[in-house]
Structures are given as C-alpha cells and as structure tokens.
Design a protein around this nucleic acid. Structure first.
Length: 545
RNA sequence: GCGCCCAUAGCUCAACUGGAUAGAGCAAUUGCCUUCUAAGCAAUAGGUUUCAGGUUCGAGUCCUGAUGGGCGUACCA
C-alpha cells in the first residue's frame, strides 16, 4: 500500500513546477480521523514554491485518481497534511492475506540471506544467574527471534572466561566450605563467595568423596564448582526458553594463538608500546584521553585484549553482523575494541552494540546493590518460582533497554495477577473460548473466505481491528531494526485493546450466520497475530485461562 | 574534572525517521457480572514533557547552556 501511495504522489509531484521535489514521507497517524496513511509533502513544498501548503495539497489532490477498490478517500487536513483512507475492499484483501500466511504472518525478508551472530548472557560461571543477568538474557534472546523473523539466520553465543582471578577465588571458596564441613575451622578466603550455593557444592563433594579430597588443591574444587554452576545456568536458561547455539571459552583464544596474532598485528601498525613493564594500546590516537593497558606488568593480559581477539574471531567467521548485548558497566570497553578492529582492517560497522541500563532492585521500598560475591542477589530461578517465566520475560521486555529498570520484588511477586502480560494472554484465551462456542453453534468457518464472505465486517471496531492486525510485519521489522523488543509489546497491547472494543461492540453468538462467520474469521486472525507476537517474545499464548 | 546514558501524570513507563489533541498500567473516585471469560469494560481526575535559550511552517524528540540522577573513567573482570 505504501508503494501504491508513493507512486500516486510521485506522479502528482511531476506535474508541479519544481526541479528537485523533497523526499516523500509517509506515516500512519495516531488518530483515526486523520486517515490510515498521511504525508506532509505539501508542507515541505510550501517554502520552495512560496505558496500556502493547503493550496499545494489541493493541487496535488486534483491530479490524483481515486481507485475506489483501494482508497475510500483522500483528504486535506490541518496545516496541509494529505490523508489517505483505505477502502473496505482493500482491508478485506489484507485480512485474507493474514489467513493465507498463518503462522508465518509477520515475517519479512529484509534480512534474507544474512548471517547474524548475537552474543549475550556471557556470565562467568561464578554463581547462579541473577535478576541482573535476566535482562541481558531475555533481551538478547528476543532480539535474536526478531531478527529471525526478518529473514536472518541467527547464532546465539555465550562467551565466558573460566581462567581468571574470579574463578580462583571461587575454587578456594568451595575448598574452604568443604574443609568447614569436615569440621575444620577455616575462614573463607579474602573476598570469597559467600552464597549458600557454595556450601551446596561443597556438600556434594563431601557426599561423594568424603574426606578423600582433603589433599586436593583449589583447581579441583574450581572444576567441580564450574560444572555445577554451568549446569545450573543452563537449566535456568532452559526454563526461560533460551537455547544457546554455542559456548565460547576465552581460553581458546590463547590456545589457538589469536591473542598473539592480534597483539603482533597492532604492534606492526605502531599502535602498541611498552612502558613501566606493561604493554599499552595507543587509544589516544582514537580520541581517548589516556592510553589503555593491554598486557599488565605481570604478563597477564587485561580483559580488553581477549575482547579484541574475540571480536576479530567472530568477524573472521564471516558473519554479516555481530550483535553484543551488555550492561552499562561495560560501556567503556567497546570503543577500544572498535578502534582496534578498525586498525586491524576490519569493518567495525558490522559490530552492533546494545547497551542496557542497570536493573535497580527495590526490596521493601529500598533500593539495594547486588553482588554475586556477597550473595545479596535475587536469582532468576527465585523470580521464576514466584511469577513464572512468562511474566519474567515480559517484565524485562516491556521497557526500552536504555532506561533504568526498576524491579520491585515485592510488587513483582504480589502483582503476578495484575501484570500486563495477562492482558495479552487473557485476550488470546478469550478468543479461543469464543471460537470453541461459535463452532458448536455455527459449524466451522470457511478456511479461506471469499471477499463476499468478509463483507459483513463493517462496524468501526471491526475495521479498526483489521487495520491494526495488518501492522504486525511492520511492528516486528521496526522492533528488529531498532533492537527494541518493547515496541512489539506496545503493538500487541494495541491489538488486545482493539480486540476488546470489537468484543464489546460486535457479538458473535446470537447474530445471523453470515455475520457470525465473518466475525469468527476476524477473531481467529486476531488470535493468530497475538500468538505469533507472543511467540517472538517467548511467552505462551494459552487457549484457556 | 572528562566520557556515555537518563529526566514526561502521585508511582513505573510509552510516544515509529521532528507532525495534527503527549498516551498506557498501577494508585484515586464513580458506574457495569441472569447475555461469547469482570484477569474485563465505560467514565472522572491527574501535565508549563526538570529549567533557560536556539533552530522551523511545527520540538517531548534536534542544537547550546544550567540543574538533578545512573554508569564508566584501575596494570579489577
């Protein structure tokens, strides 16, 4: 439809006395009285033509033919907007298109053939996933789904480091707990992990090996702890319906020589120098105030070096786009990574970074800081025990990622029933309830109706609902392009709201057969749009509640 | 100090590339369950979009400055 109107305007513009007409912009107005599609072209022309925008709009309108099968009306409104109103026939045809596409309705092909990698979660295995990780996990997974619906093939990857200082402390913490369980009076190491899960892991070792592990070093304990924690993380992700395609261990970058290669290449470019026993990266050449350390004087690389090598590795794997999802605390690292990649000759435009702001936990009306080490966190599992995975996913997705998300635990627990996700699920369940009844009463509605069979749909609520339903592909593509899943939620809310108006204005039971069947078809497609949309969000669309 | 993000109804947040009358959900007040699921609907109230300038036909959105908050600015990850 957009291209149809675009052509119409293009032709009308060619009749005007202007050499370089401005670009035609089409938008869908917020208010129904302003039609279904509108353009501001006359206002843009006002200046070069030195004429009143409404007069220009009139000139354009006079030369535009009106095909009653497509457009019901073209109107001039306000300061000079030109508004287009769809004809009913066109609306019916669109409804038939939804019916034909079925579970694929909403898919577009804008990224067909593209291979995209998205890296997310990427929590080191030092403890269970917390509410903070939840935002990352759900955001990453949903963006992946959105990209798939625009035709891309998407790989989900989890990047982790099991070799650092954190992991040593983890091993030592488990070891200390193990010794405590055997009755020795041993303190947790300085800065050790205090969570109860450490004791559980230690208890597991006691149960299995008794005193046999007294002579083992912390690395053995680390290995057991890591496996247990990873198993726990995988299970949590599974519960949220998240499936990783690959896990990438930072250690591999050392083994396969990528770290060395990157360092050597940067040296060759003259971007690396030695000072105070450390190896520095000249980030000042890229506009930063200070240079950055790549290798500490101890000989250990900082995290930046493997980060650079990892991203080079990803691009080498031939992805058209690599998406990173991370929290605001990592915001300082990626400009360095991009600078390095650029220097190494990579197209850093292929890296896309999604930064989300922190989740502020509010408990008993007070905000508090979370720390895995201090064990004052709320795990994702605990949250899902309380409210389930649907509400959990929805909660993280309903807000734009660059605003701080306030998470009131008490409210989330008790508000389960009032949570907006139920509004969508309820609408879906309600439709199915009607469909079941209608089928008993009227028999099955036609699978692929003719235009004639849809003609009883004339009520404003019906037309509004139909027009909203067609926007699903646009809503998905828009959310995917902006990496903003909450836009899809906003859209689905519109669908549910429009359905509810329809539900109140247009009864299905008790009207004559033809009208009832047409309404059944519309209701069924509404359920389709809701379930396709909820599916992308990873949320169930129940047929009964 | 410097860099990034943010500031919209009492609270939590929307508002597609600058568009027409700034919208939802909680909370408040009122009305609606012999009729397809009341986890719902209808209505009322709530706003100088933090402040001061600027750009233009038009600004919550763009620019400059101020104020207030979050994060970063480590040879921690």
């Amino acid at each position: 439809m957009n291209s149809y109107i675009y052509d119409l305007l293009q032709k009308a513009l060619s009749g005007l006395d202007i050499s370089e007409p401005p670009e035609i912009q089409l938008e869908s107005p917020k208010v129904a009285e302003h039609g279904d599609i509108s353009t501001n072209i006359a206002m843009l022309l006002a200046k070069p033509l030195r004429q009143n925008p409404r007069a220009i709009a009139q000139q354009l309108l006079d030369t535009m033919p009106l095909d009653p099968q497509v457009l019901e009306a073209i109107e001039i409104a306000g300061p000079g907007f030109i508004n287009f109103r769809f004809a009913k026939e066109y609306v019916y045809q669109q409804l038939r298109a939804i019916i034909e596409e079925g579970s694929d309705f909403g898919k577009t092909a804008s990224r067909k053939g593209q291979r995209i990698q998205i890296e997310f979660v990427s929590a080191n295995p030092t403890g269970p996933l917390t509410v903070g990780h939840g935002r990352n996990a759900v955001l990453g997974d949903t963006i992946a789904r959105l990209l798939e619906w625009t035709g891309a093939s998407v790989d989900r990857e989890y990047y982790f480091n099991d070799a650092g200082r954190q992991m040593r402390v983890l091993g030592q913490s488990v070891q200390a707990r193990y010794q405590q369980l055997l009755g020795q009076s041993i303190e947790l190491p300085e800065g050790g992990y205090e969570g109860a899960y450490i004791i559980d892991i230690a208890q597991g070792i006691v149960d299995q090996y008794g005193k046999e592990w007294e002579e083992k070093d912390w690395e053995a304990f680390k290995k057991v702890a890591q496996e247990a924690i990873f198993a726990d993380i995988s299970q949590t992700l599974e519960r949220m319906n998240i499936h990783m395609d690959s896990f990438f261990n930072e250690f591999d970058l050392y083994e396969n020589g990528d770290i060395e290669k990157v360092l050597a290449a940067l040296k060759e470019k003259g971007l690396v120098y030695e000072a105070d026993g450390a190896t520095w990266f000249k980030t000042t050449e890229f506009g930063k105030e200070k240079d950055t350390v790549l290798v500490k004087s101890t000989g250990e690389p900082t995290y930046r070096l493997p980060d650079i090598a990892y991203h080079a590795n990803k691009l080498d794997r031939g992805y058209d786009e690599c998406v990173d999802v991370f929290g605001a605390d990592h915001i300082a690292t990626y400009p360095d990574v991009l600078s390095a990649l650029q220097a190494l000759g990579y197209d850093e435009q292929r890296i896309r970074v999604i930064v989300y702001q922190f989740v502020t936990l509010v408990k008993d009306g007070q905000p508090f800081k979370m720390s895995t080490r201090k064990a004052n966190f709320v795990t994702l599992d605990e949250l899902m025990d309380e409210v389930g995975s649907d509400v959990t996913r929805f909660f993280f997705l309903m807000r734009s990622s660059n605003t701080h998300l306030e998470f009131d635990i008490g409210q989330a627990k008790e508000a389960g029933e009032k949570n907006p996700v139920f509004y969508l699920q309820y609408a879906h369940a309600r439709i199915h309830s009607i469909l079941r009844k209608a089928e008993e009463e009227y028999g099955a509605a036609p699978e692929s109706p003719t235009l004639e069979q849809l003609k009883p749909l004339v009520h404003p609520s019906e037309l509004t609902l139909m027009k909203t339903l067609f926007k699903l592909p646009k809503a998905i593509a828009g959310a995917a392009d902006a990496n903003e899943p909450h836009r899809l939620i906003n859209y689905l809310n519109d669908v549910a709201t429009d359905f509810t108006s329809f539900y109140h204005d247009c009864r299905i039971m008790g009207v004559e057969q033809e009208c009832a069947q047409a309404r059944v078809l519309l209701a069924r497609q509404t359920a389709r749009v809701l379930s396709n949309g909820l599916g992308i969000l990873g949320i169930h669309a129940p047929e009964q509640m």
